[in-house]
Design a protein around this nucleic acid. Structure first.
Length: 424
RNA sequence: GCGAGCGUAGCUUAGUGGUAAAGCACCGCACUGUGGCUGCGGGGACCGCGGGUUCGAAUCCCGUCGCUCGCCCCA
């Protein structure tokens, strides 16, 4: 029979992959909770209209997993969390104490062509601070991201968080004669500059109707790394970032603008310093989003980070953790048929004393069982043969040192635990 | 939606027209109550699938499916 293929763009999480996912989850939880954020989650399935209201219709139709349920309702596997967050906050906005500090980690789906750093099913960390409209609030969110990076071993030399502010960009563009009618277009151009060759970018910009003179002015803006000085929100942001202890991670970058329409102020993204990968996380301030999905106006700031790019970056900078996916520290061997039940009873006793115990499930040569113990990373092998059963003893072998000792049965669990915990 | 590259054992790959090979992994033996190291041996591949060219195809050609990498898009 033909094997049934997995759905394109999905990943199987074998135990080794699962330990990475859980490690990541723990790191994300650590960074989030250190700043007082609460974990929450939305449904994985949402009405299509939730996204259609906010995002471009084409975007949702072409790049989301959408289908009709049995009642004819159009639903989508969530492609992002922010609309759900806005809906949830909107529903309770009158009773929730402000500010709202929430984080989440879960699966998302996008119907895109899988490529390096991009799959159709992925996990994403979302963290948001709502109810406060200030540069210090933006700085706190960025600090949570920076502390996460530090926590996983990505230094400021490896990853930098690039900051800009759309309010500043607006003022700059106004000054060179680019008004609100062409703002969105220019944002797109800026957003894409580092992803295209300079010549290609030039051609494209001209084709979009910008004059050479305007282009020259834009180019000058993008090269000015000091333009944040004099912008009150950015000055306050960077001062707060310093006080939050993450000044080494943040840098002003006029080329960061983000593709999304809903950002209203600070925007930022974390990139590896070689710019080899896509953005590790990206976000910004969105003060009109909650009201856009029907709630009372609540200002917000936050970002999202996908697991796929992060893993690539960790590997690139040799920061990927070495994890043990085998919990069993003790292996109980099975000597012969008459030793089967005694072995099971012993394993049960050991578990009762708090040890993680695996049992070799068939009668086999001791050499084979010990080799298995070695392979699965057990620290201790327990040998319960006819001699031990007759004498009411147990042989405990330390697989790291190769030393073994035969002890009275009543002391066996404690003795094994001593080895596992490194105190013997 | 468009383009390119690649599909050979569980994994990584060699073989570029003459009837499939290596390393790792797995199993066994040396070592029937003692693992890691070593040595020896063993099992395992309709060479992605279908068609064509040829005396002969893993190899060349066409199609198809899959994977990967770009473009598009990126919430």
């Amino acid at each position: 029979m033909e094997p049934i293929r997995p759905v394109k763009g999905t990943r199987d999480f074998f135990p080794e992959d699962m330990t990475f996912r859980q490690w990541l989850y723990a790191k994300i939880r650590g960074a989030s909770e250190r700043f007082g954020y609460q974990e929450y989650d939305g449904p994985f399935l949402e009405r299509l209209s939730l996204y259609a209201a906010k995002s471009g219709e084409e975007l949702v139709k072409d790049q989301s997993f959408i289908f009709e349920d049995r009642s004819g309702e159009m639903v989508a596997l969530r492609p992002e969390l922010t609309p759900s967050l806005a809906r949830m906050v909107g529903a309770k906005s009158k009773s929730l104490p402000r500010p709202i500090r929430w984080w989440s980690f879960g699966p998302f789906w996008r119907y895109e062509r899988p490529q390096r750093g991009r799959s159709r099913e992925f996990f994403q960390w979302n963290i948001d601070l709502l109810g406060i409209d200030s540069p210090e609030a933006d700085a706190e969110i960025v600090a949570a991201g920076a502390e996460f990076l530090r926590g996983v071993g990505l230094s400021p030399e490896a990853v930098r968080i690039r900051i800009n502010d759309r309010r500043l960009a607006e003022t700059q563009l106004d000054k060179i004669g680019i008004g609100s009618d062409r703002r969105a277009l220019v944002y797109r151009l800026i957003d894409r500059r580092d992803r295209m060759s300079p010549a290609k970018w030039l051609d494209w910009s001209l084709a979009e109707g910008l004059s050479p003179k305007e282009l020259e002015a834009i180019r000058k803006l993008l090269d000015d790394r000091e333009a944040w000085r004099g912008s009150a929100p950015l000055e306050r942001f960077f001062e707060a970032a310093d006080s939050l202890g993450v000044g080494d991670y943040v840098v002003y970058d006029p080329t960061v603008i983000r593709g999304l329409d809903y950002y209203t102020g600070t925007v930022f993204e974390a990139r590896d310093s070689a710019s080899k990968f896509r953005a590790i996380f990206g976000g910004g301030r969105y003060d009109d989003l909650v009201s856009a999905v029907g709630g009372d106006p609540v200002p917000g700031t936050g970002f999202a980070m996908g697991d796929v790019v992060l893993r690539l970056v960790l590997e690139q900078y040799n920061a990927a953790p070495v994890l043990d996916s085998r919990p069993a520290k003790v292996l109980v061997t099975t000597f012969d048929d008459s030793g089967l039940m005694p072995a099971l009873k012993l394993a049960t006793e050991f578990r009762g004393s708090g040890l993680e115990v695996e049992w070799y499930p068939t009668v086999a040569k001791l050499a084979k069982q010990l080799r298995y113990a070695d392979r699965v990373g057990a620290r201790v092998a327990v040998i319960l043969g006819p001699d031990e059963i007759a004498a009411e003893t147990v042989t405990i072998r330390d697989l790291a040192s190769g030393k073994q000792q035969t002890v009275p049965r009543g002391e066996a669990a404690a003795f094994a635990r001593g080895i596992v915990e490194g105190s013997a």
